[in-house]
Simulated scan of single mutants.
Amino acid sequence: MKAISIRQPWAWMILNGKDVENRDWATRFRGRVLIHASKGMTYEEWQDAWEFAQGSGLSPKAVNAGLTSKNIARGGIVGSVEIVDCVTKSDSRWFVGRYGFLLRDPEPLPFIPFKGQLGFFDVPDHLLKVSP
């Protein structure tokens, strides 16, 4: 299955209601994609993201979940989302880039450690099998 790396806390935000992923490049890809939480994240990036998210309703949800810059999942697969379009304009509060991947139907998954890559990349199906 295809995956895309996203820095935290943006990956968490996608799984909790952020409906656009901003990129400097367009895609024709449509369909379900795994969300990979990048390993790297500075405290300044963490603060900047939450400052941008003010008023979105996500900050209280993160606080209630006990989410911090120290315990947020990084360096692996954290969920999936459907990419339904790639646009250059959007009314979404989350759209700020050159291109925006419009997202829907986020599904958190149990954390799976995995090394990310640039662009879309493949994750072997056998890693996604959940034990009964």
Rank of each mutant, 00 (worst) to 15 (best):
M1P: 01
M1G: 01
A3M: 06
S5W: 03
Q8S: 11
W12H: 15
I14M: 14
I14V: 12
G17K: 06
D19E: 13
D24T: 08
T27E: 08
R28E: 00
G31N: 13
G31M: 15
R32H: 01
V33D: 03
H36A: 02
A37Q: 10
S38A: 10
S38K: 04
K39R: 11
G40D: 05
G40H: 14
T42G: 09
T42L: 14
E45P: 03
W46H: 03
W46C: 02
Q47S: 08
S59K: 12
S59V: 05
V63G: 03
V63C: 06
N64K: 10
A65T: 04
L67Q: 13
K70C: 04
K70W: 03
N71G: 06
R74Q: 07
I77K: 03
V78S: 12
G79N: 12
G79P: 08
S80Q: 04
E82S: 08
V87P: 08
T88L: 00
K89L: 13
S90N: 11
D91A: 05
S92W: 10
S92N: 10
R98S: 12
R98A: 08
Y99M: 14
P108N: 05
P110G: 06
F111K: 15
P113F: 11
G119C: 13
G119P: 09
F120H: 10
V123L: 07
P124V: 11
D125F: 13
L127D: 15
L128T: 14
L128Q: 12
L128H: 15
K129D: 02
V130L: 11
S131Y: 03
